[in-house]
Each structure stands twice: as C-alpha cells, then as structure tokens.
Amino acid sequence: MEITQILFWFLSALALFGAIGVVASKNPIYSVLCLIIVFFAISGHYVLMNAQFLAIVNIIVYAGAIMVLFLFVIMLMNLNAETEPMKNVYMKLAGVISGLTLMIVLVAALSHSDSANTLMRPGTSVGLTENLGKALFNQYVVPFEISSVLFLSAMVGAILIGKKDVVKNRI
C-alpha cells in the first residue's frame, strides 16, 4: 500500500468512528468532541485531494468557530448524563429507519452518478486557493454573492430576535 492509501483508510476509519461516537455517546460534550474529530478527518481527506484551502477553511469555520459555539451552549445548559430525558424505543426505531433511508438515498445517488464525479483524482489543483478563488469570483460569482447576502440577513435576523424585548418595550 502507498502512503496516501494508508492515510485514506486511516482517515475514513477515524471519520466513521467519530460519527458513530457523535450518535452513541451519552454525554453531549463527548458528542461535540467526536464531531470535531469527524471534521478533522474530513479535512484530512480534503488535503489528500489536494484541496488545502477547503481543508483549512473547514477547520477554521467548523472546528474553530461553530463547534466552539456548540460547546459553549451545551456547557451553559449543563446537560449531564443524569438529566438527559429517557427516549422511548419507538423514537429510536424511527431514528434508525430515517437514518438508513438517507443512507440508501445517498448510496443510490452516488452509484448512479457518472464515475468522473465520484472518483478521487489526486492530481487536480482545483482546490488550491488561487484556482478556487478564480472559480468563485468568475464562474460562480452570482450564487456566491447571493449566499453572502443570505448570511447577512440571517445575522440581522438573529440580532433582531435577540433584541426582541427591547423593541417591544420602546413601542
């Protein structure tokens, strides 16, 4: 086996174990930590595909910011294993069925896709910062700008909801 292959299998195993850990662990803090492991494994996959920019942005945005906020909220809510509500068997069954359905949909979509889309090509340089930037700002500039406006509106909305009481009091 070559090194890239060993790394691929290692990262895949890590991602899978992390993902199972997210669902299986009782303590929500451990769930978040497992999710961080998953993000790191996915970033490793990006690096293997020569998409370094995506890899590091994945770490900065998800592991560095969003997961910190998750951890923040969970720590403030102080959810422990003892306070976790008991879930009944039917809910668990429903969760398993819906999860498996999603997996079937994904596998079906991938298996019917053109093989050029699913194959991992190590030699490409699409994921390098320069190429990605050019693609985003030339070819896909309109969707890019629209999504940024979407984020802005989401931010304004969050602030508005957070300030609800103040607005009411003034009126």
């Binding site: 961080i36 370094q52 590091i56 592991a63 560095g64 910190v68 720590m75």
Partner: peptide, 25 residues
Amino acid sequence: DINIGILYIFGVVSLGVYGIMIGGW
C-alpha cells in the same frame, strides 16, 4: 512550507480555545 501558511496559523489559533474550555468545564 505549505501554501496556506497564514490560514493554517489562523486555524490553529481558533482551535486554541478548546484546551481552556474543556479544562474549565
């Protein structure tokens, strides 16, 4: 000498908070 050097630093710095948060909790 990775060609995303500065972003790497930014990423690691943003991870630095975990040590404090996990320890404190």
